[in-house]
Design a protein around this nucleic acid. Sequence first.
DNA 1: TAAAGTAGTTTATAATATAAACTATATTAT
DNA 2: ATAATATAGTTTATATTATAAACTACTTTA
Lengths: 96, 96
Amino acid sequence: MFKELNPILHSQLRLAIMSILISVEEAEFNYLKEKTGATAGNLSVQVDKLKKAGYITVTKTYKNNYPLTICAKTRKGIDAFEEYVMALKSYLQKPN
Amino acid sequence: MFKELNPILHSQLRLAIMSILISVEEAEFNYLKEKTGATAGNLSVQVDKLKKAGYITVTKTYKNNYPLTICAKTRKGIDAFEEYVMALKSYLQKPN
DNA sequence: TAAAGTAGTTTATAATATAAACTATATTAT
DNA sequence: ATAATATAGTTTATATTATAAACTACTTTA
């Protein structure tokens, strides 16, 4: 009846991060921070969890002498996101 | 951009409970237990949280000498569920 | 060169989810 | 009669999570 909800994605901030990354090629740490409204600390932790799950890649580089962290979705991340959306639907469907 | 996800509903088991109650007039504790696959302990705790939030009513009675707990949605619960679904959509929409 | 700013990470804490252990009563087997 | 098992939950202990505060490291500006 109810499908399992992937706990890595069933988190407001991680879901927001993935949602953004699904729609763009890649995103800077600060872009994610602004769009989600998260604190840097929280974002850092959740980005790391998504990376460890293999759902995103995290590339560390420099821009204008400052550290720059760039995130991008992986195939595995896309698949997990889509499966999560499907699973969620089993909870939201209104039986008419 | 992203709407807040009501933390009372953003929980797999509580969402499942509400999802069931949305579709029926009322439901017995054991019915919820079977449909959700939850343990009795976990279900008991989450039912209590939904009750304390004012999202469901919990009526304790007896059937065949045994305790019987019956749950039903409230107007507040319906509203919260519908708002949660709306909020979720801001995370799931695929920009084409 | 001190103060403030940028870009994060690490860590401590509070909140949550969950199952194990427990309570209370009923039924069934010996 | 009473011991064992079943029913219907609740309470509690523990593990996991989410989160912000504190911190690191470096850069720019006054």
